[in-house]
């Protein structure tokens, strides 16, 4: 297990910053998910930590040692690439043993370890096959086995589940979580899939155009997003600007009574659509008219116009509602996050 510390890490590509002044600490044995839109610098982060590229500024520390200048082949860090890059000219067993062979481990040890990993990865009787003869899920398992053979302190995964179909995805996700615990590794997972990050990670770091926006436990990322960008990455959100003062949230056209908060002034409320219930119209609630209705899987998405505001609510059991119905909204304000507004006109 290893603790990783990143200090003011900056990397530019042809004048454009890929990541900018990122500092973070990843605890020993933690599973951290790096989340963000494509091109936000997630993969650059992994390549920096693995040592495949060098930062322009800043330093990388593993277990109290500065490894910034250490070459990839000397670091105790391994990485599984998105395209699993199994060597096509080597068999499954040879692929798994590759790292040990490069380190000149004795033959006996190599063979034992390979067999052990084949069992662990549920890849029996495949050791003599070539990668092109394996299914996508099997290839990804071999790629994992190949790096685990090196008994690394740090495991980096670049979108390991993105090329798999849903059933395989679930299996491999559980396998990765199990390996992470059994091998006692510090793991960094890059993903653009918010559910994957929520389900797997101890903490989530959200990147946005090369900057670290927020790093926290999944539940806090979801319920207390620090900005609009973080909020919308993890599910649908109604962003409502207004004035917050003494338990009242004054918006354009409507006053909401909210729990008393320390913070006040011009804010933007982020109301998750699943925290709004569409109910019978009653006098003490905001009321509006349904303008749109969609049905997605087991849930309905309902758009309700309240004065000038449009709320999007999400939930089950809304089958009997029709467009044009007068309804009330029950908003759980304890779950709403308010963020100060920047660049106020």
């Amino acid at each position: 297990m290893a603790k990783i510390r990143l200090n003011d890490l900056t990397k530019t590509y042809q004048g454009k910053p890929a990541i900018e002044k990122i500092s973070m600490e990843i605890e020993a044995g933690e599973l951290m998910a790096l989340v963000g839109h494509s091109g936000c610098g997630k993969t650059t982060m992994l390549r920096l930590i693995s040592g495949l590229i060098q930062p322009d500024q800043g330093s990388i520390w593993i277990d109290g040692l500065d490894v910034t200048k250490t070459k990839a082949e000397k670091r105790d860090v391994v990485m599984v690439f998105q395209e699993n890059l199994l060597f096509p000219h080597l068999t499954v067993a040879e692929n798994i043993a590759f790292g040990m062979r490069m380190q000149r481990s004795p033959r006996k040890k190599r063979m034992d370890k390979t067999r052990e990993l084949l069992d662990l990865m549920q890849l029996p009787d495949l050791e003599k096959r070539y990668p092109s003869q394996l299914s996508g899920g099997q290839q990804q398992r071999v790629a994992l086995a190949r790096v685990l053979a090196l008994e690394p302190k740090v495991l980096l995964l670049d979108e390991p589940l993105s090329n798999l179909d849903p059933k395989l995805r679930d299996d491999l996700r559980d396998l990765i979580l199990k390996l992470h615990k059994d091998f006692k590794m510090t793991t960094i997972l890059v993903t653009h899939d918010r559910d994957e990050a929520m389900m797997m990670a101890d903490r989530i770091a959200v990147l946005y155009y090369g900057k670290l926006l927020q790093m926290d436990k999944p539940i806090n990322i979801y319920n207390k997003p620090v900005s609009r960008e973080v909020a919308s990455l993890f599910g649908q959100c109604n962003f409502i600007p207004g004035l917050l003062k003494d338990g009242v949230f004054q918006t354009e056209g409507y006053r909401f009574r909210v729990p008393a908060l320390k913070r006040g002034g011009r804010v933007e409320a982020c109301v998750r659509s699943e925290h709004i219930k569409v109910v019978r119209p009653e006098n003490d609630r905001p009321m509006g008219v349904i303008t749109e209705k969609k049905y997605v899987g087991g849930q309905s998405i309902i758009k309700v116009a309240v004065g000038n505001l449009i709320f999007i609510a999400r939930g089950s059991n809304y089958f009997d509602l029709e467009i044009g119905n007068q309804v009330g909204l029950d908003i759980d304000w304890t779950l709403v996050s308010f963020n100060g507004l920047k660049n106020q006109a």
């Binding site: 693995s50 040592g51 495949l52 070459k71 990839a72 082949e73 000397k74 860090v77 391994v78 990485m79 690439f81 395209e83 890059l85 060597f87 000219h89 590759f98 790292g99 062979r101 490069m102 380190q103 190949r146 790096v147 090196l150």
Partner: peptide
């Protein structure tokens, strides 16, 4: 460079990377 990167990750030094990953290609 992806195959060389992969070989680096698997701790192959310069000659090993050429001999075991580039040459077969």
């Amino acid at each position: 460079t992806k195959w060389e990167d992969q070989a680096k990750i698997l701790k192959a030094n310069g000659w090993q990377r050429f001999w075991f990953t580039s040459l077969p290609f």
